[in-house]
Nucleic acid binder design. Sequence first.
DNA 1: AAGTCCTGTCGAAGCGCTTCGACAGCCTAT
DNA 2: ATAGGCTGTCGAAGCGCTTCGACAGGACTT
Lengths: 337, 337
Amino acid sequence: MVTLAEVAQHAGVSASTVSYVLSGKRSISVGTRQRVERSIQELGYHPNAGARALASSKSNIIALMVPLRTDMYVPVMMEIAIAVATTARTHGYDVLLLTGEEGPDAVRRVTGSGLADAMILMDVELDDERLPLLRRTDQPSVLIGLPADTTGLTCVDLDFGATGALCAEHLAALGHRDIAVIGEAPAVYERHTGFAERTLDGLRSRAREMGLRVLHRPCEGGYDAMAVTLSRIFDERPGTTGFVVQNENAVEPLLALLRQQGRAVPEDVSVIAVCPDQVATQASVRLTSVAIPAQEMGRRAVEHLVAKLDGRGEDDVVLLAPELTVRASTGPAPSGS
Amino acid sequence: MVTLAEVAQHAGVSASTVSYVLSGKRSISVGTRQRVERSIQELGYHPNAGARALASSKSNIIALMVPLRTDMYVPVMMEIAIAVATTARTHGYDVLLLTGEEGPDAVRRVTGSGLADAMILMDVELDDERLPLLRRTDQPSVLIGLPADTTGLTCVDLDFGATGALCAEHLAALGHRDIAVIGEAPAVYERHTGFAERTLDGLRSRAREMGLRVLHRPCEGGYDAMAVTLSRIFDERPGTTGFVVQNENAVEPLLALLRQQGRAVPEDVSVIAVCPDQVATQASVRLTSVAIPAQEMGRRAVEHLVAKLDGRGEDDVVLLAPELTVRASTGPAPSGS
DNA sequence: AAGTCCTGTCGAAGCGCTTCGACAGCCTAT
DNA sequence: ATAGGCTGTCGAAGCGCTTCGACAGGACTT
């Protein structure tokens, strides 16, 4: 293992000079810089991360806390995680992967040990038990998701309220009157992860303005659960012609069931999904959807965090504007209804 | 930030004693130990990761390199990553998330800087450019996946050869004669990620033994690509009654298309998927499948790595035995054929 | 000519921990 | 009683880096 001192000796300068070449914190003459850089190359020097962290009290690591559950919106999580990792690298940071398993202790451990300089939390609940800790510590953090109380916090999320509204508008504009929302699994609502509620609220209030009737039903993914949910919906509101689906795992089952019941999409029934574009384009019907901009969220989270680490940037709630893409799953409401 | 020295002072012992209490590397009297532990509690002490890494040349971090592409087998990747993270924690390690983006440079950077003590690589290609580096360094590593040459490497993977054979056997036993394999996207084969080939080889050789005719077609996921692929298959082999699907994104499209063509599953056509159980049970037909044991793979990889770090454990290729679960998508071949 | 300011470099201190060798005190074997 | 071996503790060195203050020498002022 090559050390700074060896590089210094090889280049005929002092250790501190090498350090300054590396960090650029003091001006160095061109000649010296080149000599040092050549030595670094030749010796294959890599600064030792531990020593660096110790001396500078900066680890250049961002901790990313992902939910432990692998049962929902997995592709979204993965995409965010990867966007976080790649964006972090472009700013010179590495990413430490924490699972929700440890809960608040993970926050304590990471901030206490100086393992990471900052954190990004995903899957934030409305009244998340990690939030008090975050507010108390002076370590910068960014949430992906929106808790009930955002004071003193920085959050990045899709504007789910507007998302719901957008869905309502689109269906209303097409002449639908009775619509059903297939929501996330009941567990999601119980955990009070806010996004599902926000979508629903946004949708409901716009629906009211536009004279739409809304029926909301949570749904575990999967064919069987969807079958039960769907038959209940049609029992209660036989005239339902529009669906908004927020649970990725319910999308295909819903399409399959509709087909099986002889209801054509989009001729008889329109379906909007709230999901990543990839899911929307790979479904058995190309789905009109509001995209969940996973990459964008990861990227923005990191950029905010880096800004904070650099002393720029303040607490802030960033809500990304939703975009609805019309594909083949929505159309005018059937004239009969 | 509380330091070791402060704890020592608070407990009335020397710094080294506190260190030994923490590490257990020397025997400490019960009284002293308790006193120190209480001080640690009261002061809320957390050892500084950087200092520790510097002094001990151990970071207690495992690097996990995940593929950058988010276009395929995402749930599997995510599940592995999470299993790696949680298993690592139980052994006292944290996980650093690297994306494939940096390529071999990431390996150099991490081993060179002592950022991590060991690495786990996912999505290994048959002739991966990172392998020479891994062989050269003395840092332990484990691959999830199987390269062409495994000498000097430790690998964990599903036994895809046996997986293919298992699929062939199951279909043959049910009386099918003509089967089609819907493979991964062409890009996967071009990259020479071995698992797809291995599945196919295993399947083909067992099929030959059992008198099955096999048609293999790679397929991008998605409805449209699947439609093209499927019609080609039936053009070429109208008597095809069995399908083996290895691409998660092709599963639902295939089911939808078969349904649309009036071919009932499993009465007219049988389908086996190679996918995580979750996908198999949430599909629109409960799929007979060979599970991809993502959690198990992540866990085993970490355990091997920890064994190596502890000086136990040698290079080794671990192939997990596949298990086929019969669900509702396979049945006897129609008697007419 | 002396004073002032840069620029580029160096030396040394210190970040918080681990670990080695030393050793005091006690117990046991002789 | 003495030597030898344990057990439990301490002090000090050092891990590889950053960073502060010092300062030599040249370029400007006045």
